[in-house]
């Protein structure tokens, strides 16, 4: 490159000094947008995380016949594992089930006086929650003729009603969160792009003169792009500082007092800062470069 980075840096700093108001407007817009995005990312993650963990509890219960032998249990276990869409099979022997139930309701099980009415049970977890009905069909309705997968299986339950409702709700939550995120990102890009456009519009005459003197497009563009990088980085730093302060002052006490916001698997503050920094710098720099295009056509 014939011109050094230092030259373009000086040019952009000069421009920002002499156009303080539009530069500040751009800085403020990007800062506010980044703060909103920074708040929204963990919220979306917490919501979809909660929905997914609920969906993770979807499974098919397979009850063995009362008199099933240990050999039959082993055989059924193998058969269940061999089915498509099955991720995991957990065996619960009747003794364990009894102990579990007794703990929940000691009085009722006192009456049984030692006998165990519970069957051996398999909990079959599908690969994804939406395949649960297929898995159920594979076990209790082999070939579509109402046949059990194995003669030793007494019955199959997947709490069909609950499962269907749960799946509907989680899908709705996930789609809504994704839609909101998409809208927010679109709004941010448009808002930032528009602010940059305005500040460039104020300087279109300058660009026109530069072109008349014989400046190449990139000679004109570099200072604007660098300006975008500076504004974006400044805004990201402001936003991150604000968010970090908010986290320490507002969120941390809430989380420790009530365990309310102990959301599963949300983004850490450090990766969040990085994301905001990259987004701020990227959108501003690309925005300036692209918005300039229409003024360069002289």
């Amino acid at each position: 490159m014939k011109h050094s980075l230092g030259f373009f840096l000086r040019e952009s700093l000069r421009a920002m000094r002499r156009n303080a108001a539009p530069s500040f407007a751009a800085l403020a817009t990007v800062t506010v947008t980044l703060i909103v995005v920074g708040v929204f990312i963990p919220i979306v993650q917490a919501t979809t995380g909660a929905a997914n963990s609920a969906a993770g509890k979807v499974m098919v219960d397979v009850y063995m016949k009362r008199g099933a032998t240990h050999a039959a249990d082993l055989r059924v276990m193998g058969e269940l594992r061999a089915l498509p869409h099955v991720q995991r099979v957990v065996f619960e022997p009747k003794a364990q089930a009894l102990a579990q139930q007794r703990k929940q309701d000691p009085l009722a099980y006192e009456l049984l006086s030692g006998s165990n009415p519970l069957p051996d049970t398999f909990h079959v977890y599908p690969t994804t929650p939406s395949t649960v009905l297929a898995v159920r069909a594979e076990i209790s309705d082999v070939g579509g003729q109402g046949q059990m997968l194995d003669p030793a299986i007494a019955s199959v339950s997947n709490h069909t009603q609950d499962t269907k409702r749960l799946l509907t709700v989680t899908r709705f939550v996930t789609i809504t969160a994704a839609l909101l995120a998409a809208l927010l990102i679109a709004a941010s890009v448009l808002l930032i792009g528009n602010t940059i456009r305005l500040s460039l519009y104020a300087r279109r005459r300058e660009v026109e003169v530069m072109k008349l003197v014989g400046a190449t497009d990139w000679f004109i563009r570099w200072p604007f792009v660098i300006e975008g990088v500076i504004v974006g980085a400044g805004a990201a730093v402001l936003a991150v500082v604000t968010l970090a302060a908010a986290k320490v002052v507002v969120l941390d006490p809430l989380a420790s007092n009530w365990g309310l916001i102990s959301a599963p698997r949300t983004i850490g503050i450090v990766p969040l800062m990085l994301v905001l920094l990259v987004a701020g710098v990227g959108v501003s720099a690309v925005g300036s470069g692209l918005s300039l295009r229409r003024f360069l056509r002289v």
């Binding site: 000069r14 421009a15 002499r18 156009n19 005459r205 300058e206 026109e208 003169v209 530069m210 072109k211 008349l212 003197v213 014989g214 400046a215 190449t216 497009d217 000679f219």
Partner: peptide, 20 residues
Amino acid sequence: VPFYRRNIGVVFQDFKLLPN
């Protein structure tokens, strides 16, 4: 075009100076 324009000096009625 930019390289071509460098061979031509242009003067306008409204001067077209860079105000900054």
